[in-house]
Nucleic acid binder design. Structure first.
Lengths: 162, 162
DNA sequence: TATTGTTATACTCTATAACTATA
DNA sequence: TATAGTTATAGAGTATAACAATA
């Protein structure tokens, strides 16, 4: 059936809303996150898992609590993430000799493979996502986002704010 | 207790991850959305409700389906949003004379008040959020985000992509 | 007393499917 | 047959609290 009545059906938000930096930031943020989730799915991991692997790789064996802090997750969430990575054979929980409450998380060879594959996925997505921008524009954008990050995320890492 | 063992506790993601535009976009997007939620909370509404009011104001009486399309929500979600706005006295469901399946959503005086209050909240947040940037930088950022939006959200409004 | 890993619970969002009444 | 509104359900994400083992 064709459109009629009081209703044009293709109504959009006024530019006063949809043309705002904050609105664009929110929508772009979720869109890019969804694409990252979709791009990682073939590897059997999600962005948090990739972040966990990268953090362990960068800092050597770490505890789950350290992972939670670095990834800004609750430590109860890290349990499931480490379970998942453990089941995938990417990390191992080993007893921490210095503190028996802690598990030292170690990367396996499979974990290092996963990191390489995840890096390739991230690189590919990066290139696709930024295709509309030239090198200078990318640098500009990175600088501007960096300024907002410094102001809003460093002081308030979870972004609950104000 | 002080840090010890294999664990420095303040481990961060490597810059290869945390210094990427996509990563910053994702984090800034959720942070700004959370702040908007918090800023609107005293009005008893959430961002989607504010968007619904703005869209009805801009286009006159619309159907719930039109609202769903314009706000990129499922129509089943719109039901709850309209219920909420109705209970708040901000909108009314009236029969659509041209199509008895449809509800024509009308703004009330209370709805118009809410819009004004929501605008004030949005303006205040906008100013706080962009405080680190000068006028030229804001224009630059808006232009760059607009380019990404055009490339990634217009073709794929829900951002599920690829 | 405080911290680590763990489990449990609840609350929101999102996605999907199905039903009804109308077209 | 298709659409508008509605209801129900299931899944993911997040937040909170509590518990046992250990510090």
């Amino acid at each position: 059936m064709v459109r009629m009545g009081p209703d044009s059906r293709d109504a959009e938000l006024p530019a006063q809303v949809s043309g705002r930096i904050g609105y664009l930031l929110s929508r772009l943020g979720v869109a890019r996150q969804r694409r990252f989730v979709a791009a990682l799915a073939p590897l059997g991991i999600r962005p948090g898992h990739y972040g966990a692997l990268k953090l362990i790789e960068a800092h050597g064996p770490v505890s789950q609590q350290t992972l939670a802090d670095g990834l800004r997750m609750d430590r109860s969430v890290v349990v499931g993430a480490v379970d998942h990575l453990g089941a995938a054979g990417a990390v191992q929980r080993r007893p921490d000799p210095a503190d028996r409450r802690r598990h030292a998380l170690h990367l396996t060879a499979r974990g290092r493979d996963l990191i390489r594959e995840g890096d390739a996925v991230a690189d590919r997505l990066h290139e696709q996502w930024l295709a509309p921008l030239n090198t200078e524009q990318r640098e500009q954008l990175l600088r501007l986002l960096g300024m907002l990050t410094k102001a809003h995320l460093h002081a308030d890492p979870r972004g609950r704010g104000r």
